[in-house]
Design a protein around this nucleic acid. Structure first.
Length: 196
DNA sequence: ACCGCGATGCCCT
DNA sequence: GGGCATCGCGGTA
């Protein structure tokens, strides 16, 4: 499958967040490969978005990568124990990003099961199977995405995104999650997920 | 099924 | 020192 180009990412997060649905996130590590379909995303619109880490032009060491240009990863820690994986969008100096909130396992099932639960895929309970990659922190753990993947070039060969299949689907549009601190921005319909 | 809560570390004021 | 772009558990139904 064809890898997404730098230009794909060089657009508003609202567009990229929607278009990433159905695409395939690929993680290569130690000669092994994990693939998963992107099924939920959120747009963070930068300077003007009270929910974004770069709101108001905030530029600290943590968010620096958001200013560096499209197609790089922004990985940060939340609640002291989970990571969130974002894709930086827009040109250098315009700090937008898309948060991946959920993916669906396609390949490398045993690797994901090991990373999450220290078991083979077959050994997972039903609920563990369902919860394998259905949250931002969970998908990071399953795909071995942590601090070390911050600033990774998604046009490279360790962590990247490919075109998906041609399956038809709908996009459900809702409010973003976990941003009650963001004033009126908490109600913006900037969360998207794959239906069917 | 839904709800409440504690875990735990880093970032930024 | 306050607060998090979360998760999983254990309680009540």
């Amino acid at each position: 499958m064809k890898r997404l180009s730098r230009e794909f990412y060089n657009r508003d997060s609202l567009i990229v967040a929607k278009e990433l649905l159905g695409k395939v996130l690929v993680r290569e590590r130690d000669g092994q490969k994990i693939c998963a379909k992107i099924v939920e995303s959120e747009a963070y619109m930068g300077i003007e978005d009270k929910a974004a880490h770069s709101y108001g032009g905030r530029r600290t060491p943590r968010v620096e990568v958001m200013y560096g240009g499209p197609g790089f990863s922004y990985v940060f820690m939340v609640y002291g124990m989970h990571y969130c994986f974002n894709i930086v969008t827009r040109e250098e100096g315009t700090p937008q990003a898309v948060l991946l909130r959920a993916v669906e396992p396609i390949g490398g099932l045993d690797l994901m099961a090991q990373n999450r639960f220290k078991k083979t895929y077959d050994q997972l309970t039903k609920s563990q199977m369902k919860a394998l990659t259905n949250g931002p922190g969970k998908l990071c753990k399953a795909l071995f995405i942590d601090k070390g993947s911050n600033g990774e070039d998604l046009c490279g060969s360790k962590l990247y995104i490919e075109e998906g299949g041609n399956e038809r689907f709908k996009i459900v549009v809702t409010k973003r999650v976990g941003i009650d601190y963001a004033g009126e921005a908490k109600d913006y319909l900037w969360r998207f997920y794959y239906r069917r």
